[in-house]
Design a protein around this nucleic acid. Structure first.
Lengths: 111, 111
DNA sequence: CTGAATCCGCACGGATACTG
DNA sequence: CAGTATCCGTGCGGATTCAG
């Protein structure tokens, strides 16, 4: 008989683990995401124009796009203050802050 | 007077740090690198054909290419046994093994 | 001020065929 | 067995323009 829910083999476990890690990495993958996160780590919260001036090499499009992805993945929160001119603040979520330990491990490995 | 070797500002430090982290990440970035590393973590050492069968979704080209990059970056060592048919073994270097702590941190964050 | 929309080039990865 | 070599499609990121 062929099981509809076969026992996961060691190979399956390993491959799934690699896949999950890749998924995790994909959330911080992007030309300017680390730079964005670094600025938010340091300042707690930044409005859009500040980030723009802080990372001048990044185009407006990429900044917006990366911020949207970071927001979608729950690493960054976006707050719009209803006023003119518009004002939007980005800050790290708890999950975003939890990345510190990952970066610490990575930095240590890198040294 | 304009210094030829200006003191690095906090901003410079941060940006450089982000750059270094990105460089570190780039070494494990690649569609199949994590899968390769996972197999090597588990088995210690694998020959090319074994990896090929273990990761059938990856094309031969990508497997070779990623292995070359992992070797160039000092994560994996490549040993050729001069015989016919040829036999090549890949194994993790110390630096490659040291990635375990990074993956552990990443996995914990991911949970 | 904070975006959205569009066009474009290039690098990455996939498919296939060939080689020592 | 363990690769090269080649072609090709897609997606990411950059530059520019428009909008609320």
């Amino acid at each position: 008989m062929i099981r509809s829910h076969p026992m996961p083999s060691d190979a399956d476990e390993r491959d799934l683990c690699a896949e999950r890690l890749r998924e995790a990495l994909s959330r911080i993958d992007g030309r300017w995401k680390l730079a964005i996160l670094a600025h938010l780590f340091e300042s707690g919260s930044q409005r859009f124009s500040k980030l723009e001036r802080a990372i001048p090499q990044a185009s407006q499009k990429m900044l917006t796009q990366h911020l949207r992805e970071l927001e979608r993945d729950g690493l960054v929160s976006r707050t719009v203050y209803p006023q003119v001119p518009p004002r939007v603040e980005y800050r790290l979520t708890e999950r975003g802050n939890a990345l510190k330990s990952v970066f610490a491990a990575l930095d240590q490995w890198n040294a």
